[in-house]
């Protein structure tokens, strides 16, 4: 599982990285990515994103 990042909404504040319980999110330069092998789909990052840039990804 992995959260989907809407890069046109994300401003690279990294707040989501700090609340992710499993260190699945990384902000490199200003580009956010989610490691699907770590993400547990808890939704904490989606809830706190000020810009609504994160959403649930498709589970596989």
């Amino acid at each position: 599982m992995a959260v989907k990042v809407n890069h046109s909404k994300c401003i690279g504040c990294a707040g989501c990285v700090g609340v992710c319980p499993v260190l699945a999110l990384t902000l490199e330069e200003n580009k956010l990515s989610c490691d699907a092998s770590k993400c547990i789909d808890c939704g904490a990052c989606i809830k706190i994103c000020p810009f609504g840039a994160l959403s649930k990804g498709d589970s596989k």
Binding site: G18, V19, P21, A44, I48, P50, F51
Partner: peptide, 13 residues
């Protein structure tokens, strides 16, 4: 133990 709980943060614009 630096992880932030959503309760302990404010989301700001």
């Amino acid at each position: 133990d630096c992880k932030y709980d959503p309760y302990d943060v404010d989301a700001c614009v």
